[in-house]
Design a protein around this nucleic acid. Sequence first.
DNA 1: GCGCAAAGTTGCAACCAATGCAGATTTGCG
DNA 2: CGCAAATCTGCATTGGTTGCAACTTTGCGC
Lengths: 204, 204
Amino acid sequence: MGLRERKKEQTRRAIEDAAFRLFAERGFQATTVADIAEAADVAPRTFFAYFPSKEDVLFADFDETSEALAARLRDRPTGESTFDALRGWITSVLPDLEADEPREALRHRLCSEYESIAAHERHLMARFETIIAESVAVDLGDAPSDLRPRMIAAAAIAALMAMRPDDPGAEELPAREKLQRLDEALEFLRGGVAVLQGADVPQR
Amino acid sequence: MGLRERKKEQTRRAIEDAAFRLFAERGFQATTVADIAEAADVAPRTFFAYFPSKEDVLFADFDETSEALAARLRDRPTGESTFDALRGWITSVLPDLEADEPREALRHRLCSEYESIAAHERHLMARFETIIAESVAVDLGDAPSDLRPRMIAAAAIAALMAMRPDDPGAEELPAREKLQRLDEALEFLRGGVAVLQGADVPQR
DNA sequence: GCGCAAAGTTGCAACCAATGCAGATTTGCG
DNA sequence: CGCAAATCTGCATTGGTTGCAACTTTGCGC
């Protein structure tokens, strides 16, 4: 990786770190893009060369995360269901989440404080939902736009969001308990799917 | 209702109508709040006395709709499940949706054109989700923050969103077909619930 | 009707996010 | 070293959003 790319990564980090620090100190509204730029030692205009909006800096890692999830679901071994793959991916990603907990917590706090941030997060979650729905559709032999995969994906996302730290109902759960809750959730999904397949409900 | 309130309602309508007309004609970005205000014959500043943001004018009816849903679920006769009540509410609300179809379609089009609008809609849908989750929690004897009601509510919302006109997979469906799809969705939810209750999964 | 208080409207000024543009700077590479 | 491409920056502009203070209209008691 050349100097150019290293520097770029470095600048991105500087902006991200400055933003999270200032958001934590003063809140989201009270921090201007100019403040972030100054703290990161770049021109205000440069901020927008890295992040399309002030909100996006909070969710900078979503792109690669969703890409990773999509890859994991796409390349799963034959015979492994979407739910199995999902479980595998989540367990492999949990340590990262724990390591990044302060940011995770800040994100969550800001989501409950500012509607625009919560809306943004929901929007990004919708992309996850689509990815899962597509994979479930393959399992079930449905079209991705059919009802079944979309409902199942929506429920899976709800389970995912419930696993975040600070979630009501999961405040102080250690990782072990979280996994147990995840397994409950997947059991629910498998049950729903079984019922639907047994019932032979016409689709489309 | 006094003159004051009548005038206020009239102004709100004028702003709303002007906004929808201009959005349809020129698109969302290309329409400024000043344009809307001028078309509605009020001062630009007045727009914000009625709607907190330019996006909110698109979803002005969500507040009363969600209140209506909450009331319907809260006041359902004993013995009627959340799913039954939900079905009743949707069938009672479908005619209004059909009548309002141009606006519904425009909303949907703008949601796919502008991320900020899609995010906003998702955020509002989250409120619906909470309402449904609370009602389901009562049915199941769970806490509203438990996993089961939230997953079920999320799936229900996904089904709801799939019933909108212009949705991929439901483009040209007449009302009769829509109801059939709704019943499929509810069947899925009942199936999932049955499995979970039979399995006696420990919650919390 | 009169007049007062509350509610609603308006214009003004200001802040800030976001974008286009053009010039300066830096880097990669021959 | 020197050129082309990629980055960074300052500047100007647009437009959403808000606080404030003045002004107008309405509801209501007398």
